[in-house]
Protein backbone atom coordinates (compact mmCIF):
# COMPACT_ATOMS: atom_id res chain seq x y z
CA UNK A 1 0.00 0.00 0.00
CA UNK A 2 2.69 2.42 1.01
CA UNK A 3 4.81 1.28 -1.92
CA UNK A 4 2.14 2.07 -4.44
CA UNK A 5 1.69 5.48 -2.84
CA UNK A 6 5.39 6.16 -3.32
CA UNK A 7 5.07 4.93 -6.89
CA UNK A 8 2.21 7.35 -7.58
CA UNK A 9 4.15 10.25 -6.12
CA UNK A 10 7.16 9.44 -8.25
CA UNK A 11 5.05 9.20 -11.40
CA UNK A 12 3.60 12.64 -10.69
CA UNK A 13 7.14 13.93 -10.28
CA UNK A 14 8.06 12.48 -13.68
CA UNK A 15 4.97 14.12 -15.17
CA UNK A 16 6.03 17.50 -13.83
CA UNK A 17 9.61 17.06 -15.05
CA UNK A 18 8.23 16.13 -18.48
CA UNK A 19 6.03 19.25 -18.51
CA UNK A 20 9.04 21.36 -17.63
CA UNK A 21 11.35 19.87 -20.23
CA UNK A 22 8.88 19.68 -23.13
CA UNK A 23 6.18 22.27 -22.55
CA UNK A 24 7.82 25.21 -20.86
CA UNK A 25 10.20 27.90 -22.07
CA UNK A 26 12.97 25.36 -21.38
CA UNK A 27 12.27 23.93 -24.84
CA UNK A 28 13.56 27.15 -26.38
CA UNK A 29 17.10 26.29 -25.20
CA UNK A 30 17.74 23.39 -27.63
CA UNK A 31 15.46 24.99 -30.25
CA UNK A 32 18.24 26.44 -32.40
CA UNK A 33 19.62 25.48 -35.79
CA UNK A 34 22.67 23.55 -34.64
CA UNK A 35 23.97 20.09 -35.29
CA UNK A 36 25.44 17.82 -32.66
CA UNK A 37 27.18 14.62 -33.79
CA UNK A 38 25.78 15.39 -37.23
CA UNK A 39 22.18 15.40 -35.99
CA UNK A 40 19.91 18.35 -35.28
CA UNK A 41 20.22 19.41 -31.64
CA UNK A 42 16.46 19.58 -31.22
CA UNK A 43 16.00 16.05 -32.59
CA UNK A 44 18.50 14.71 -30.07
CA UNK A 45 16.94 16.70 -27.26
CA UNK A 46 13.34 15.60 -27.94
CA UNK A 47 14.13 11.92 -28.39
CA UNK A 48 16.60 12.02 -25.51
CA UNK A 49 14.11 13.52 -23.08
CA UNK A 50 11.45 11.15 -24.33
CA UNK A 51 13.66 8.09 -23.75
CA UNK A 52 14.67 9.25 -20.30
CA UNK A 53 11.04 9.82 -19.31
CA UNK A 54 10.13 6.30 -20.41
CA UNK A 55 13.14 4.82 -18.62
CA UNK A 56 12.19 6.66 -15.44
CA UNK A 57 8.58 5.47 -15.70
CA UNK A 58 9.68 1.88 -16.23
CA UNK A 59 12.07 2.11 -13.30
CA UNK A 60 9.39 3.51 -11.00
CA UNK A 61 6.56 1.13 -11.85
CA UNK A 62 8.85 -1.87 -11.68
CA UNK A 63 9.53 -1.04 -8.06
CA UNK A 64 12.92 0.59 -8.44
CA UNK A 65 14.22 2.19 -5.26
CA UNK A 66 11.21 1.29 -3.15
CA UNK A 67 12.91 -1.14 -0.82
CA UNK A 68 14.66 1.32 1.43
Amino acid sequence: MRQSKMMRQRLVAIFLIGLLLLFSPVIALPDRPRLLFGLPLLFLYLFGVWSLLIAAMAWVVRGGGTNE
Binding site: S4, M7, R8, L11, V12, I14, F15, G18, L19, L22, L42, F43, L46, W50, L53, I54, M57, V61
Partner: peptide, 20 residues
Protein backbone atom coordinates in the same frame (compact mmCIF):
# COMPACT_ATOMS: atom_id res chain seq x y z
CA UNK B 1 9.59 19.27 -39.08
CA UNK B 2 8.75 18.18 -35.57
CA UNK B 3 4.99 18.78 -35.82
CA UNK B 4 4.24 15.04 -35.69
CA UNK B 5 5.72 14.58 -32.21
CA UNK B 6 3.12 16.20 -29.89
CA UNK B 7 0.66 13.48 -30.91
CA UNK B 8 2.96 11.00 -29.15
CA UNK B 9 4.58 13.15 -26.48
CA UNK B 10 1.17 14.07 -25.03
CA UNK B 11 0.13 10.44 -24.42
CA UNK B 12 3.61 9.67 -23.04
CA UNK B 13 3.29 12.33 -20.38
CA UNK B 14 -0.35 11.44 -19.72
CA UNK B 15 0.64 7.82 -19.14
CA UNK B 16 2.33 8.86 -15.91
CA UNK B 17 -1.11 9.83 -14.62
CA UNK B 18 -2.77 6.59 -15.67
CA UNK B 19 -2.21 5.17 -12.21
CA UNK B 20 -4.89 7.63 -11.13
Amino acid sequence: GYGFLPIYLGPTLAATLWVF
